[in-house]
Design a protein around this nucleic acid. Structure first.
Lengths: 221, 221
DNA sequence: GCGTCCGAATGCGGATCTTGATTGTCGAAG
DNA sequence: CTTCGACAATCAAGATCCGCATTCGGACGC
């Protein structure tokens, strides 16, 4: 899952980035509205964390522009201000959630999880496909009840596929959502990880749609 | 838009119902967890507002049960409690948003709007013609309910025709949209793929307009 | 310093695409 | 109604592309 943080505070921004990366997200950080708007317009994120108080361009403006451009990733708005009228404005501008500073990092992560989950159309924090079960909260994966040890990348890949169960996911899409900005697109990394996941979870878990991408079968599909 | 409110407080519940109804929603009100869970399981709502502190069954339990039953309408959780650990629990149980009492009605409405808007974004776009159904999100094609396996090119071609249902599409147009830039115009690839699609989906699915191109019939056209 | 994990390179095998020739069909004109 | 020409459909085969397995060097963490 790839996240965009738009935050100008010199300590909070990098700190958030580090925390989220250690949680398993690919994170890009923009330190002003201009940059943030550009990244959000040109790259593909699964969610964005947007500070309202920004230099150059106001956070609300950035959000509004994204929405006009039909950029529909979920946005979690951060603000120091605490009046509910600001919240209403933010929500109406297209924010999907709202968090007042100061906040607990854990709550931020929980809300982020919820946002991504909902954006993918999943309600439960447990993602399943056939015998495979993944708990987004604990990061555990089981196959028919048995715990399976996945590496970080394997987990990211599987997680993304599970979040988009039933959908055909292209290799490009996977690369864009598992890695951040700078990554060599010309490599067969995805294939390699798909192979490794298949070795651990069974070959039938991931279906190859030749020429289009990969797909996790919906049990009742 | 139809909303379910699960709220036991004798004043707040009816008051919310009245407010939302005046805003244009159809509202059902349940006053305990048992009733709330039943309504949420059997009726179709666009969103639910769920109080965590409930008699009989706890709100979190109700939410958890809905999610296990694959009831995926967005849920806005209300609570008197204010600790972030409760919020985390609620979000992980499958809540989509969270509001601490007391709250401004206006903020509640704004959040509800945001929830419904987001949920609507997940609607899968399906293209159909006769017995054929193509889901652009999952990339699946079915004929009379039966899944049909199409190759990449077949899929592209069919997809383009479905997007322009009813229109006569020339061979040139198809080539231009299925292939990138330079492609040998003097070839009968299109015919070949049309043949293959017809073999898989039935000969009547694509009509040939001699000298002009191909056409997908609109069912009611 | 050792083990694990990641990502790049390679070669293979098979599915898929394209081509060109052949056969089939439509429609207009005689 | 028949015939003819143009266009469309079909088929088979070679070429091509794509994905898979495997290996290996290096990075990273412990």
């Amino acid at each position: 899952m790839r996240i965009l943080i738009v935050e100008d505070e010199p300590t909070l921004g990098p700190q958030l980035k580090a925390t989220l990366e250690s949680t398993g997200y690919a994170v890009d950080l923009a330190t002003d509205g201009e940059d943030g708007h550009f990244l959000g317009s040109t790259e593909n994120y699964d969610a964005a964390i947007l500070d309202l108080g920004l230099p150059e361009i106001d956070g609300l403006t950035v959000l509004d522009r994204w929405r006009r451009e039909k950029r529909n990733f979920p946005v979690l708005v951060l603000t120091a201000r605490d009046s509910w009228s600001d919240k209403v404005a933010g929500l109406d501008a297209g924010a999907d959630d709202y968090l007042a500073k100061p906040f607990q990092t854990e709550e931020l992560i929980a809300r982020l999880r919820a946002l991504i989950r909902r954006a993918a159309g999943n309600a439960s924090s447990e993602l399943t496909a056939g015998q495979v079960r993944l708990d987004t909260r604990s990061g555990r994966v089981t196959l028919a009840g048995e715990a399976v040890k996945l590496t970080a990348q394997e987990y990211k890949l599987l997680s993304y596929l599970l979040h988009h169960k039933g959908k055909v996911v292209s290799r490009t899409e996977l690369i864009e959502h598992i890695y951040d900005q700078d990554f060599d697109r010309d490599s067969n990394t995805i294939e390699v990880f798909v192979t490794r996941i298949r070795k651990k979870l069974g070959a039938d878990i991931i279906t190859t749609i030749r020429g289009l991408g990969y797909q996790l079968d919906d049990p009742q599909g």
